[in-house]
Design a protein around this nucleic acid. Structure first.
Lengths: 128, 128
DNA sequence: GCATGTACTAACTTTTAGAAAGTACCAACT
DNA sequence: AGTTGGTACTTTCTAAAAGTTAGTACATGC
């Protein structure tokens, strides 16, 4: 029973009001995951990131990056030139997080065929 | 034509239409993360899970568990007794995923103080 | 015999995400 | 000289998702 160990840890994501819950939402949010994973591959400008993370709207990417910057996971470097030139990169803390996310993504991508098979079984059992 | 290379390409979370994107959404969704993390600690019944994952509504927990069951990450065992008795547990695939999630959560929980400090710096820089 | 608990589902409301257009500015091309 | 294009966003409006509340079928305890 690792319950005793878990309760001993200060921050607990299972508590609704815990600060870690908000951080988890930013990091594991639909676009947070992909932004962090993309930035693990290097430095990106806004529109380059948008092309990398296919399907994200400008609004959501801006919002996501602002949240991650505020949390200290992403570093934003803006050169006040015209046209504007903004570079996004991971902070050391962001790199820590991105590594765990990539480990997750790797497992999930490898598991896609198994998941599709499981879905087919589930749907047939339901339909029949 | 569907060959090995093509299948490997399709398993890319950065592609909007990829199946792995849907799986990622289930797993890293607001409640998916917490449900999987909770189930890593053992077998839970519906309402026990609901108490564990504080803040989740009945609707969202049911929906989340159904998606994860369909994906093959969660096993649902229902005994047709009255009152109903349903037990949720992780499948081997689910355990793989839950382990990566717990590694992430651990990093995030440990980083909460640093995040709060970063937020304070960000807000002051913005406000000032 | 009425509340309580179980595991949900359905209807309804609120919140959030997404699509599209606007902003400010300059460089290059027509 | 004016249109087009590119940068990095912000704003507005609507469509989709999440949350709230109430209901189901039945058994046990009070």
């Amino acid at each position: 029973m690792p319950d005793a160990e878990h309760d001993a840890l200060v921050a607990d994501v299972f508590s609704a009001a815990c600060a870690s819950r908000a951080v988890l939402d930013h990091v594991t949010g639909r676009w947070g995951v992909l932004a962090l994973a993309a930035l693990h591959d290097g430095v990106f400008r806004f529109n380059a990131l948008r092309r990398r993370v296919q399907g994200v709207s400008e609004k959501m990417l801006a919002q996501t990056l602002q949240a991650l910057e505020r949390d200290g996971f992403v570093h934003r470097e803006a050169r006040p030139t015209i046209p504007p030139h903004v570079e996004y990169s991971l902070t050391p803390a962001g790199r820590e997080v991105a590594e765990r996310l990539l480990a997750l993504i790797e497992v999930l991508e490898a598991g896609v065929p198994a998941v599709m098979a499981a879905q087919a079984r589930y749907d047939e059992a339901k339909g029949a």
